[in-house]
Simulated scan of single mutants.
Amino acid sequence: MLLRERQTAEGLLVSVCDAACLGETYEEGEVSLNVTEAFYGGDDAEAVGDDAVVESLARASVANIVGEASVAVAIDAGVVDETRVLSIEGTPHAQLVRM
């Protein structure tokens, strides 16, 4: 999984995706998800395991999560509700916002 953290005025923004999803675009009806290098990858992204993803999501104010493995880790950690996960072309996508 690729993990990227950015500090924003609103708090910690975390992006997580399965490495195989990077660079892909998923479309279904009017919904389009572009897993760009600029947002999910780049020099700040790290290849990490489950524990690092869970630790980062626990601190996140906002998170975007794409891919079967990445979303499964968030669900297993209790950070994401499985019933709220979108599937776009069969690829899971979840967002987290803490207020």
Rank of each mutant, 00 (worst) to 15 (best):
L96C: 10
C21Q: 04
S15V: 14
V16N: 10
A69Q: 08
A58S: 14
G90S: 08
G11V: 01
T83P: 01
A63N: 07
T91G: 01
A63G: 06
L86I: 08
H93K: 14
A72S: 14
A63L: 11
D18W: 06
C21W: 01
H93Y: 15
L96K: 08
R6A: 07
M99F: 13
D81A: 03
G41P: 04
V54Y: 00
E30Q: 14
G42M: 11
S15G: 00
E55I: 01
D18T: 02
S15N: 11
E28V: 06
G67P: 05
G23Q: 00
V54Q: 05
R84P: 01
A38S: 11
E10C: 03
V85M: 09
E82F: 04
E30H: 12
R59C: 04
G29T: 07
E28L: 04
N64L: 07
G42C: 04
G11F: 15
A69Y: 08
E82T: 01
A52Y: 01
T83L: 12
A45I: 06
E27K: 10
Y26G: 01
E68Y: 13
V48F: 06
M1D: 11
V62C: 08
T8W: 03
A58Q: 12
T36W: 03
V85Q: 10
D76L: 06
V35T: 03
L12Y: 14
G41K: 12
G29N: 11
A60T: 13
S56D: 03
L3A: 03
E24W: 08
V62Y: 11
V14D: 03
D76M: 10
R98K: 11
D43H: 12
Y40C: 09
D43K: 11
R84T: 13
A19N: 00
E24T: 03
A52N: 02
E37W: 10
A47R: 14
N64F: 06
Q95E: 10
L57S: 05
E27W: 04
E28Q: 13
R6Q: 12
T91K: 07
A52K: 10
C21M: 05
E24H: 05
A77T: 12
S87C: 06
G90F: 12
E55A: 14
A77V: 05
N34A: 12
V85R: 09
E89S: 15
R4I: 01
V66D: 04
L96E: 03
V31T: 15
L2M: 04
G49H: 06
E28A: 09
D81P: 00
Q95T: 15
S32K: 13
V16L: 07
E89D: 15
L33Y: 05
A74F: 13
E24N: 03
L3C: 07
G11M: 09
A19T: 05
V31I: 14
V66T: 10
E27A: 13
Q7R: 13
A52G: 09
C21V: 00
V97N: 00
E24D: 05
Q95K: 04
S32M: 11
Q95H: 15
A9D: 14
S87V: 02
A47V: 07
S70C: 07
P92V: 09
S32F: 06
S32L: 14
A47D: 02
V54N: 00
T8M: 15
V16W: 02
R84Q: 14
S87A: 12
S87M: 12
E46S: 12
E10K: 15
V66R: 00
T8L: 14
V97T: 08
